[in-house]
Computed example of a mutant assay.
Amino acid sequence: MRAVVIAAQGGPEVLEYAEHPDPVAGPGQVVVDVAASGVNYVDIYHRSGVYPVHLPSPIGSEGAGTVAAVGPGVTEFAPGDAVGWVNVLGSYAEKAVVPADRLVPIPGGVPADLAAAALLQGMTAHYLVRSTHEVKEGDRVLVHAGAGGMGLLLVQLSKMFGATVHTTVSTAEKAKLARAAGADEVHSYEDFAQALKDSVDVVYDGVGATTFHGGLAALRPRGLMALYGAASGPVPPQDVQILNQSGSLFLTRPSLVHYVADRDEMLWRAREIFGWIAGGQLRIDVSHRYPLAEARQAHEDLAARRTTGKLLLIP
């Protein structure tokens, strides 16, 4: 099979597309013929060294496809089943080995490419609006990068649960996309903090360093910032007294792994996301599909913010 691996951490040039032996399912494992793999910022963190990995390492942590073989002890899945997964390295490949307890079934009516596009970002958006801060009718929400894959999902789900949604974007084209997803107000990165000063209930920030202090300024007293990513770089160490000075604010740095550690919780999140997709309530915007051999280009485009929506690699 063909797969992308890294022998060292660094820039996009460390992504090596080459022939590798076909994987074999061990006890409790499943081999999946990969139909599509999602490209995410976490992949860049694994590649660059922000998140350490054991080298040499497979890469890609989100995918969907069809079960090709099951290992000893696997009873929940059988060859031919449509499945997806997140937080398991190795999806940048024609075949992937995934622990059976980390797979989720894909229902009929949800194509494999949409499932691959929806799982990591969809379940992240789900935990942010359903668990980290349960969005409710009347909330005022600020979503940074509202035209990106995560931003578009957060805008849609926040509107679904009754919030007034503000978002930030960098271009007029991206503003149109955010409004089409349901955003009530679209702001530039330069003016959002002043325009929203002391007014929003929750900030969903996947941008990081360049938006952090502005997000705190936009929060009402006792508001919550969910800092779930760092597309512009990590937030430097802060004096926690800033939370008091800004209005007894709450700050959390959540991660999907802790919100899907329990299998029942993972299945609940995936089931709701797939249900909303199948029912037409949630639209997944796949803006770019790259051949697996072009993983480097996908990483370059994502890091340079040349794209909107979701990026996929197709074996």
Rank of each mutant, 00 (worst) to 15 (best):
A3Q: 09
L313V: 10
D43K: 15
V143K: 00
G146T: 07
L128F: 05
T167R: 11
L55I: 03
V104I: 13
D33W: 14
T171Q: 08
A298V: 13
L152R: 15
Y51N: 03
A96L: 10
D43M: 12
Q245H: 12
N244R: 08
L256W: 05
K174V: 07
L249Q: 00
H46D: 07
A18E: 08
L15F: 07
H187M: 07
M1K: 14
G122R: 00
S48I: 02
G206A: 10
L311H: 10
K95T: 09
Y51K: 05
L243Q: 03
A304S: 03
R130W: 01
G151C: 01
S188K: 09
V165L: 14
P237A: 15
A93L: 05
L89D: 13
V74M: 08
I277W: 14
V235C: 00
Q238M: 02
Q156R: 03
N244W: 01
G73L: 04
L128D: 01
D101R: 07
A117Q: 11
V240Y: 13
D301F: 03
R296V: 08
T75W: 01
R305A: 13
L243K: 04
A193I: 15
Y92A: 09
Y127C: 02
V200W: 02
R102G: 05
G206V: 08
L249P: 00
V24E: 15
L249V: 00
G214I: 11
A303N: 15
K159A: 05
K159M: 10
L153T: 15
A261V: 06
A304D: 02
A8S: 04
L119C: 09
L153Q: 11
Y228D: 00
